[in-house]
């Protein structure tokens, strides 16, 4: 039970923190190359080694009707 709780909390916090981080950095600056394509090195630094993951769950919360950067 304790492990389940900790896993749940850790996952929840990890998701929250990752969103906060993503929302405060520019995707273009982080990932874009000068030519407008993907900067493979920046993506690799952000994602770490590709371990063969098959699914990416991306999420938001509290955007409160705003499509702009700061929610």
């Amino acid at each position: 039970m304790r492990n389940t709780l900790q896993t749940t909390v850790n996952l929840t916090l990890a998701l929250l923190l990752s969103t906060a981080w993503i929302s405060t950095t520019s995707v273009q600056a982080q990932l874009g190359s000068p030519s407008g394509g993907v900067n493979a090195k920046a993506m690799a630094e952000r994602l770490g080694a590709d371990d063969g993951f098959a699914v990416s769950l991306q999420y938001s919360g509290d955007i409160h009707g705003s499509l702009e950067t700061c929610g």
Partner: peptide, 29 residues
Amino acid sequence: RRVSYEKALQEQVGRSIAVLQVDAGNFLS
């Protein structure tokens, strides 16, 4: 930005993954 991130990620992995986008609430004013 979020959609750009998804596109960049898919480009990085050769469109080999599935991406699921969700919202946990308070998405409307």
